[in-house]
């Protein structure tokens, strides 16, 4: 199953990826990262189709897509 990994040291919690994901797989964490943001995370297992739309909009290159 495809998946994404979010680098919490790079994510600035802008939420743009949550809107870009056609499957609504991404949610924001409710705990702060070390850098002081609420980072994005893959909320549901078996949700991601590996389309990389989230990667396209992520300003901070925080997302890596695996397929």
């Amino acid at each position: 199953m495809p998946k994404i990994e979010v680098d919490e040291m790079r994510c600035k919690g802008c939420q743009l990826c949550t809107k870009a994901c056609p499957k609504q797989c991404i949610e924001m964490s409710d705990t702060f990262s070390k850098t002081g943001y609420y980072p994005a995370k893959l909320a549901k297992q078996d949700c991601c189709i590996g389309c990389a739309m989230c990667y396209q909009v992520c300003p901070d290159l925080a997302i890596t897509v695996f397929k």
Binding site: R10, K12, C14, L16, Y37, P59, D60
Partner: peptide
């Protein structure tokens, strides 16, 4: 890490 604000289009 770039200094741009969260969501900034520059990045």
């Amino acid at each position: 890490t770039m200094h741009y604000c969260p969501g900034c289009g520059h990045s």
